[in-house]
């Protein structure tokens, strides 16, 4: 565990040691703010809980993009700068490397969500909303982001460059997003499976409405662990692949 935290701490520091971390934070806040004003608040009158539901819906898109951008560099950048060898030749397992890097991205992502909390809080000025709905919505965003970070981390473990990792990661996320569409033209039992696998449609909407289903939490945790384990295997395979 100490090695995981050690790697996570270094990686987390790296986000803030360069402009990239601040840039991602600023861009996320700017675009979230714009989306909140344009779509969530809108021009017509709305119930406060609908404003919040819309906010979480639009934020989920932002979250997926941010998660891919945060995670695409995690391993690919180390390959590009030849620093991965430090981890590969230290008495550290591939699982510790992957989880350490994942936790750093998740922690930064947590900061991202934390600083955006002022947006739903604005609804308190003119409306009445439940804190529980905000908390549930943010839990959904965190879980969705965690799954996307794991997916992009796997892509990063395959790639030599960050751009390539970002592209592959984004493609994988999109593919998992649209499985519910594929489900429409598929027969059972594949249909049910496709619906279930969709990254957003079935599982996220409940969070944005303030409803917490255990099965959705399990789904996002499952996706996260599955892709992280794939990344572990991908890193392990490097020694026999070459």
């Amino acid at each position: 565990m100490s090695k995981i935290l050690l790697i996570a701490r270094r990686e987390f520091g790296a986000y803030f040691a360069t402009f990239s971390g601040y840039l991602i934070l600023a861009a996320y806040l700017l675009i979230s703010g714009l989306l909140f004003n344009i779509y969530a608040l809108g021009r017509e009158a709305k119930f406060s809980q609908d404003v919040l539901a819309d906010y979480f819906y639009y934020s989920s898109g932002m979250v997926m993009v941010a998660a891919v951008i945060l995670a695409m560099r995690l391993i690919a950048e180390e390959r590009q700068t030849h620093t991965l060898v430090l981890l590969q030749t230290a008495p550290v397992t591939e699982r510790e490397v992957v989880w350490g890097k994942f936790l750093s991205a998740l922690a930064f992502f947590g900061v991202l969500l934390l600083v955006s909390l002022y947006l739903p809080a604005l609804v308190f000025i003119n409306g009445k909303i439940s804190v529980l709905q905000i908390m549930t919505g943010y839990l959904g965003l965190l879980l969705l982001g965690s799954a996307c970070i794991a997916i992009a981390l796997l892509a990063s473990s395959w790639s030599q460059s960050q751009l390539m990792a970002g592209t592959i990661g984004a493609l994988m996320v999109v593919l998992l997003l649209i499985t519910w569409m594929i489900a429409r033209i598929t027969d059972e039992p594949l249909k049910g499976l496709m619906y279930y696998l969709a990254l957003h449609n079935l599982h996220f909407r409940t969070f944005s409405r303030g409803t917490l289903h255990f099965r959705d939490v399990i789904y996002y945790c499952g996706v996260t662990i599955f892709f992280l384990e794939c990344a572990v295997r991908s890193l392990e395979s490097r020694v026999w692949r070459e």
Binding site: R10, A17, T18, T81
Partner: peptide, 13 residues
């Protein structure tokens, strides 16, 4: 202890 041909250094540290 291993030193590769290109030292594995994190430039920001």
């Amino acid at each position: 202890g291993y030193l590769p041909e290109i030292p594995p250094l994190y430039g920001e540290m």
